[in-house]
Design a protein around this nucleic acid. Sequence first.
DNA 1: GAGGTCAACTGGTATGACCAGTTGGCCGGA
DNA 2: TCCGGCCAACTGGTCATACCAGTTGACCTC
Lengths: 244, 244
Amino acid sequence: MLKPIERRSLADAVYEQLRDAIVSGDLEPGSSLPSERQLREQLGVNRGALREALKRLEEARLVRIRHGGATEVLDFREHAGTSLLEDLLVAPDGSVRTRVARGVIEMRAALAPDIARLAALRGGPDCTERLAEQLVALREADGVLNQQRVALEFWATLVDASDNLAYRLAYNSLREGYVRFMHLLSPVLADEVGDVDAYQSIADAVAAGESEAAYDQAKALLARGTGTMTALMDAVGRQQTETP
Amino acid sequence: MLKPIERRSLADAVYEQLRDAIVSGDLEPGSSLPSERQLREQLGVNRGALREALKRLEEARLVRIRHGGATEVLDFREHAGTSLLEDLLVAPDGSVRTRVARGVIEMRAALAPDIARLAALRGGPDCTERLAEQLVALREADGVLNQQRVALEFWATLVDASDNLAYRLAYNSLREGYVRFMHLLSPVLADEVGDVDAYQSIADAVAAGESEAAYDQAKALLARGTGTMTALMDAVGRQQTETP
DNA sequence: GAGGTCAACTGGTATGACCAGTTGGCCGGA
DNA sequence: TCCGGCCAACTGGTCATACCAGTTGACCTC
């Protein structure tokens, strides 16, 4: 099974390097970045590529650029948005930050019940139909990884039915980080995605418009993965007491 | 009361224009953008500024750039992350999109109880202390707007205590859009931020480590704003049936 | 000491050239 | 006819250089 070669433009490489330096604390919040001309030279790239990277850092609220003044490093905990989550999920050395992953799992568990509730209130017949199809696919899926994939689609259907753009965008953000490490979370979520009956219950409640039932069913289902994750973290112990 | 003059670089202006064109559907998903040389000429800017804007669009997952190939417009509903939320909250003409605002209010209500719950489980004495200070400030605050501001800080304390980076980043993202239109939401949230006793109850539960109580109290408090928002949308009716 | 001036920074914009990857049509051989 | 390589004409990526525009702080004047 071959994987597509991932490419990185110079601007991307510069962005990643500066981002990691900021997130790791090597560049302290409140301090100033060297001037673009100096940075350009240190990094060995042209100023245009550097500026593209700086613009992205500004967009992510990791730095604050002022025309005529210095470029200031910001505290990412204070200012950065959800877009940073997928970057923080994996450390520069490639390992997954368990602490961050736990946070994602918890957030997922907090949002999912309300998504199911709203889907029950606002979903139409096309939603019901899609859920039915995906339940069939879920039953037929072989292997935890494929089950995870179908479950992801199942939730996408509910998110769309909830008619809530904030949920849709949050779903996209979480998914972005999730798919990259889906295989690592397989043991954590195997229990959850294997319980097709629970998904069936949610789909039934949504189809019937029973919002509270949908809420409760979703909450019960997600609690499994969350519990497994918490237990796993307790077992592994403290290998992540430092930043971030 | 004077306001600071907001500046826009060329790259920012280009970004906003292209973003609005994509979000509004003028640039259809799947279609290709003109080449950088053509766009540069149409917009009357240099290629560097245009490329900085395109890089940001790519970061926001509104377009997909391929070296040697065309730049493709993506479906923002399918790919964009939470960072787009603050942009979508306000239409190009400056009005607030009620539908999007409702989504934000709902998401807030879904996250807050779990944040309070985790804060109760993981918060330390410094959290308790800060909450006490903020409660004093909340009682002393005059005007709904100031109450909203203090309440925002109150929640920031809880978010930090929850020791969940995903929540912190989501909080930052939501806050970004919220503060810009805080005054418009004053009537919606006046009831909520005025009930200092409810905040007191949450703080007490968190200080005592009673996670379920904190959860319930937060849920009850947030339900007010959510209910008002829903009622408001029903009253105003359908002026937002179209995109997005 | 208050206030204005100015030089030496900073980032912002502009131009033109060339490098690198993609696409599709053309052309020669099987 | 069809397959294959080849090549020209796109596309985005990188580069060097110059100059414009805003900020800062030292200095000078009153």
